[in-house]
């Protein structure tokens, strides 16, 4: 792992960059840091989650970030976004934050598009290596995902509803390499879950005296489009009865909120949708608490800074991991419950 081994076509990191990124290069290595610098990422919408993602990936030294947003700053935004101040109310969000974002890291190439997502077509999206959509409604999410599938671009989606939030991942197909200590029983190739399969295992022996044996495991991750995930979502056969009873209400509530226009639906309609979602997932209906449903409705579309920090942190780290080609990616639906702090990964 030396600077000389930098991927072809990219420039070696300077000594100053190595000093600046010291604490993270020690974690993921010079090669991953160099790989990140050649990536071009699109972020859609700069809300509270978008701001957190921006901060994290700009600080980490990504090559190019393009932000697409056409919102006007409201007073409410001031309560959940740290790149905005009182004077910015009424301005375009990107105009207000541009220079502040660049200040995080002058080495990152930034570009900004003040436009609406529905006005953008394939010729726009194909310029990017990876797309992150935040604050999208279901229709926008499905349209975007259809496009990223056609263009073969990895997609991340994230959103929050008060104390609850989700991440959806569609990398289409992704082979990840992980290294771990070999346990007594050696790892075997084969399917390990609905979406993941181990395709090869190499051994590496540590160079010091201890001669520790590591396994380099290559795992193939398969993904589904957002629409298919919604259609097929089930936990049947994936979790035991006990585990099913403990799944946070945030999962069926969030999935139900994708179904029809949650914004306009009455409390009763939403409750019915949630119950249907439980049936589909295989979750016992009696586990749905009225308190959770009530606050989920009350906190409809509410952005909350600490929830955004958790979701934006997890999403940004996964983006960094796949761009740097380190660590296994998330697969494919993550739910965060800000009350209990539970954050589970479901293969839906």
């Amino acid at each position: 792992m030396s600077a000389n081994h930098a991927t072809n076509g990219t420039v070696k990191l300077s000594e100053e960059e190595i000093a600046l990124y010291d604490r993270q290069i020690r974690l993921w290595g010079l090669e991953a840091q160099t790989n990140m610098r050649s990536a071009k990422v699109l972020l859609i919408n700069l809300g509270s989650i978008g701001t957190e993602i921006t901060k994290n990936i700009v600080l980490s030294g990504i090559g190019h970030l393009n932000i697409l947003d056409n919102h006007i700053v409201t007073e409410e935004d001031l309560g959940c976004q740290f790149l905005l101040g009182k004077e910015d109310v009424g301005k375009n969000r990107l105009d207000a934050t541009k220079t502040r974002i660049q200040e995080f890291n002058p080495r990152v190439n930034l570009s900004f598009d003040k436009a609406n997502i529905e006005d953008m077509d394939a010729s726009y999206f194909k310029k990017f290596d990876l797309v992150i959509g935040t604050e999208l409604n279901t229709r926008e999410a499905i349209t975007l995902n259809t496009m990223t599938r056609q263009l073969n671009i990895p997609l991340y989606l994230a959103g929050s509803n008060g104390l609850f939030a989700y991440i959806f991942v569609d990398l289409i197909q992704f082979d990840a390499e992980d290294e771990k200590l070999r346990s007594i029983k050696a790892t075997e190739p084969g399917k390990i879950s609905q979406n993941r399969e181990i395709i090869s295992i190499d051994e590496r022996i540590s160079e010091d005296d201890d001669k520790i044996v590591y396994e380099r495991i290559k795992t193939r991750n398969l993904y589904k489009p957002f629409q298919n995930m919604l259609d097929d979502a089930t936990l049947n056969g994936k979790l035991t009865h006990r585990q099913l009873k403990r799944v946070s209400n945030a999962l069926p509530l969030t999935l139900a909120s994708f179904l029809s226009s949650f914004d306009d639906s009455s409390k009763e309609t939403f409750e019915t949708q949630t119950r249907n979602m439980c049936l589909k997932l295989g979750l016992p209906i009696e586990t749905i608490s009225t308190q959770y449903t009530e606050q989920f409705i009350r906190q409809r579309n509410v952005e909350f800074a600490p929830v955004a920090a958790v979701i934006g942190g997890a999403l940004a780290q996964d983006v960094i991991n796949i761009l740097g080609k380190k660590q296994s990616p998330l697969n494919n639906f993550i739910i965060f419950d800000g009350i209990t702090l539970e954050m589970r990964i479901f293969e839906l």
Binding site: D22, R23, E52, K55, N56, S60, E294, G312, A314
Partner: peptide, 29 residues
């Protein structure tokens, strides 16, 4: 030297802030 990155710190700080609401017993629901 202990490696350190923005994302983990953001996640941990977010969790710490959230749990503070329950420590102070401020969550209505």
């Amino acid at each position: 030297i202990i490696p350190a990155i923005a994302t983990t710190n953001a996640i941990i700080a977010g969790l710490s802030s959230l749990v503070s609401l329950r420590v102070l017993n401020l969550l209505k629901y």
